[in-house]
C-alpha cells in the first residue's frame, strides 16, 4: 500500500476517534477546564498528530494510548461527580481573596497573584475601587467572583419595593414566514388565534419574518417589509387607561351629585376601582 493511502486512512480513523473521545469527555468550555483536563486534551491531540504523519509507527499503539488518556480523565470526572472530597482534590477549591472588605495578602501570595493581577481581575468585574468589594473568591478555573458591598450592588425592584408581575419566557411562533406549531401549543394557542391577531394588525403571514408571543398572549411581529409600521400591543395599556378614566368619572359624579345616597355609592365604588387599579397595574405594564 502506498504511504499516502496509509496516512489518509490513519487520519480519517484518528479524526473520528478523536471526535468521539472529546465528545464523551463533555462539553465544558475551554476556560472551565482544570489543568489536568487541559493537559489530557493536549496529549490526546498530540498522540493523534504523531501517529497521523508517521507511517512507521504501530497504529494500535496510537489507539491504546488514546484510550488510556481518555479513560483516566473520564474516570476521574465521573468519580469527582460522586464524591465531594475527591472533587476538591482533583478540581481544587476556591480561594478567598477578599473577605469582609479586607484583602487576604497570604492567599494572594499562595496563589501567585500580584496586587496588579488582583486589580485587573476586579476591573474585569467592573470594580475599580478595591474597597467597594465585600467578598471575592478565586474560582478553581481562575476567574474571580466578586460580591460588591450592599450599597454598590445594582438597584433591583426588590430594593425599591416595587411589585412586578411574573413573566415567563416568550415563545417564537412565526419564523421566516412559517408558523411553528409547538411553541403555539405551549401557550395553549392555535393558528386561528394567530391569524386573528395578525388580521388585527393588518399584516399577512407571508410578510412576517419573526413573531413572538409573551405568556399573556401579546403578539409582537417583525415584518420583511421594513417600511410598514407595526402597531405595538395596545390591549393592556388601553385597559389601564379605561380603568383610570372610569375612576375619574366616578369621583366626578360623586362631587356633582346632591343625593347623599348616590354620593356615598360613587365614592365607595371610586375607592374600590382605585384599589383595583393599584393591584392590577403591575400586570398591565
Amino acid at each position: 500500500m502506498p504511504e499516502w493511502i496509509i496516512i489518509l486512512l490513519r487520519s480519517l480513523t484518528l479524526i473520528t476517534l478523536l471526535f468521539f473521545l472529546t465528545k464523551w469527555l463533555g462539553t465544558k468550555h475551554l476556560s472551565q477546564l482544570n489543568i489536568f483536563e487541559y493537559i489530557s486534551g493536549i496529549v490526546l491531540g498530540s498522540i493523534a498528530a504523531i501517529h497521523t504523519v508517521d507511517p512507521d509507527t504501530n497504529f494500535s499503539y496510537a489507539v491504546i494510548a488514546m484510550v488510556v488518556w481518555f479513560m483516566v480523565p473520564f474516570g476521574v470526572e465521573k468519580m469527582a461527580l460522586k464524591s465531594k472530597a475527591f472533587r476538591d482534590f482533583t478540581e481544587g477549591k476556591g480561594v478567598v481573596f477578599i473577605q469582609d472588605g479586607k484583602i487576604m495578602e497570604d492567599n494572594l501570595k499562595k496563589e501567585g497573584y500580584s496586587t496588579d493581577d488582583l486589580l485587573e481581575k476586579l476591573r474585569n468585574n467592573n470594580i475599580f475601587l478595591a474597597s467597594d468589594v465585600e467578598f471575592a473568591v478565586l474560582e478553581p478555573t481562575g476567574s474571580l467572583s466578586v460580591l460588591p458591598k450592599r450599597e454598590n450592588r445594582p438597584l433591583t425592584a426588590k430594593d425599591l419595593g416595587i411589585k412586578l408581575a411574573p413573566t415567563k419566557e416568550p415563545q417564537t411562533v412565526v419564523m421566516d414566514g412559517n408558523v411553528l406549531l409547538e411553541p403555539l401549543a405551549n401557550l395553549s394557542l392555535n393558528t386561528n388565534w394567530l391569524e386573528t391577531e395578525l388580521d388585527k394588525m393588518n399584516v399577512s403571514i407571508e410578510n412576517v419574518f419573526l413573531a413572538q408571543a409573551d405568556s399573556d398572549g401579546q403578539l409582537t411581529v417583525d415584518l420583511y417589509d421594513d417600511m410598514i409600521a407595526v402597531p405595538a400591543p395596545t390591549e393592556k395599556p388601553l385597559l389601564l387607561a379605561t380603568m383610570k378614566k372610569c375612576q375619574a368619572d366616578l369621583e366626578l359624579f360623586a362631587l356633582s351629585t346632591e343625593n347623599p345616597e348616590s354620593k356615598e355609592m360613587y365614592q365607595r365604588n371610586g375607592k374600590k376601582l382605585q384599589n383595583a387599579i393599584d393591584t392590577i397595574s403591575p400586570y398591565l405594564s
Partner: peptide, 15 residues
C-alpha cells in the same frame, strides 16, 4: 379575556 389567556397562575388570580 386576559385571565383566560395568561399562562401564569399569579397573573390569572390578579386578573
Amino acid at each position: 379575556i386576559l385571565s383566560n389567556k395568561t399562562q401564569n397562575v399569579e397573573s390569572k388570580q390578579a386578573f
